[in-house]
Amino acid sequence: METLHPDVQDILLSEEDIRGIVARMGAEITKDYADKNPLVVAVLRGAVVFMADLMRAVDCPIGIDFMAVSSYGDGAKSSGVVRIVKDLDTKIEGRDVLIVEDILDSGLTLSYLMRMLENRGPASVEVAAFLVKDVPGNAPAVKPRYVGAHVPDEFIVGYGLDFAERYRNLSYIGILKPEVYQK
């Protein structure tokens, strides 16, 4: 059983829950890409933990690469500005691309990223989102092909997700106490 960090109010997904989600998603991706060699792209930094586990759960040839985009800074709300900090090193023309994302809320940043990649002529661009945040009255701008779990409209940390570069190393997904991010 995980020890609750003092800044976390509740655990939403335990380590065991996460392992089950990753195994299920890996099996789905293996089935869908069995005869292909997709390029799995992690959106840094939050998705790196999920990608490391997911790629081990996929049983077909894959390549990996990384992108970094900036849209949040140190705050709890998006800055509204999307900036490519690190682009792909791999050419994607004619290749199936699977973007691995840690959490999807509005989907605006991911929508921008997908359009940018689609302009490079890949065979396909799909999304595997570990978490989708359920925001009442607001459907994400992107519909992921693979979804790990849905979470409430709260500030979620752990398993790669952070607040101001903290909590990424928690082994579970938890809800950050509001007094921590509302300072």
Rank of each mutant, 00 (worst) to 15 (best):
M51W: 10
Y159R: 05
N138V: 11
Y181A: 05
V157T: 08
A47H: 06
D17N: 12
L54H: 04
K133Y: 03
E118L: 15
M1L: 13
I92D: 01
L39S: 09
T30I: 04
G75E: 02
S78T: 13
V125P: 03
A128G: 11
I103R: 08
I11W: 05
F50I: 02
M114P: 10
V180E: 04
R120K: 14
I29S: 14
L170E: 10
I156L: 06
L39P: 01
G46E: 03
M114V: 14
D32F: 15
R56V: 03
V40A: 02
Y112R: 15
R115W: 03
H5Q: 04
F163H: 00
L88W: 11
P140R: 08
L161K: 04
L131Y: 08
V40T: 03
E179F: 06
F50C: 04
M55A: 13
A141C: 12
R24W: 04
Q182L: 10
L13Y: 11
D59V: 12
K36A: 11
E165R: 14
I156D: 07
A128C: 14
M114A: 05
G160V: 06
A47S: 14
S78K: 09
C60Q: 11
A164E: 09
D32C: 11
D74Y: 14
V147I: 12
V157H: 05
L44I: 12
E2W: 04
L110N: 07
S70P: 07
G148E: 01
E154I: 04
V22W: 06
R19W: 12
L13S: 10
D153W: 02
V43S: 00
V69W: 02
V151A: 06
D102R: 01
Q9D: 14
P6D: 09
G73Y: 00
I11Q: 09
L117K: 03
Q9L: 10
V100N: 02
G148D: 00
M51A: 13
G158T: 09
M55G: 12
P38R: 00
E16W: 10
P152E: 01
I99F: 08
G121W: 06
L54C: 11
A52W: 10
M116N: 08
A42Y: 09
L176M: 01
I84W: 14
V58E: 03
S111A: 15
D105P: 13
V85H: 01
M25W: 00
R19T: 14
G121Q: 02
